[in-house]
């Protein structure tokens, strides 16, 4: 199953890094959408079918935590798989994020780290288990 993915980060460079890492992760990808803040992300979700959102926390206009709350409150998107991708290192803050039913990936991250987080968050079976892997566990970090 190819996943339609939304990448939400106010940094264009970080969006590019996340998308590059997604392609290296070996996860089957469909459409990839980008948004530079929470409000833009809500518009994308309103107009498109998205299977997975990768969300930064600190953003202008509508930050990642408020975006997650809005997504969860909307019956149309309440079940969306979400991974927070952040520099946040505080265990307290990470626990707060995870209490919202989302996974967490710390920057910098490897394609394999992202892959495992996606598989856990979406419940998609890792078809690569029985085939040759394009990405090793010791791959580059991003």
């Amino acid at each position: 199953m190819a996943l339609n993915v939304l990448v939400v980060d106010d940094s264009a460079v970080m969006r590019a890094i996340v998308i590059k890492t997604l392609h290296l992760s070996g996860v089957a990808l469909g459409q990839i959408y980008e948004a530079k803040d929470g409000e833009e992300a809500l518009r994308v979700l309103d107009e498109n079918w998205v299977d997975l959102a990768l969300i930064d926390i600190n953003m202008p206009v509508l930050d990642g935590m408020d975006l997650i709350d809005r997504v969860r409150q909307n019956p149309e998107t309440s079940d969306l798989s979400i991974i927070v991708v952040s520099t946040e290192s505080s265990e307290t803050r990470i626990e707060n994020v995870q209490r919202k039913g989302v996974a967490f990936v710390h920057k910098p991250f490897t394609p394999e780290t992202l892959r495992q987080a996606i598989l856990r968050a979406t419940g998609v079976i890792d078809e690569r288990q029985d085939s040759k892997s394009p990405v090793s566990g010791g791959g580059f970090d991003f």
Partner: peptide, 18 residues
């Protein structure tokens, strides 16, 4: 941002929030 995010908890403790 990433250097700072990784540095501060190593100085103040993993539970601290910045």
């Amino acid at each position: 941002n990433i250097i700072c995010g990784n540095l501060l908890p190593s100085l103040a403790g993993a539970k601290e929030v910045f």
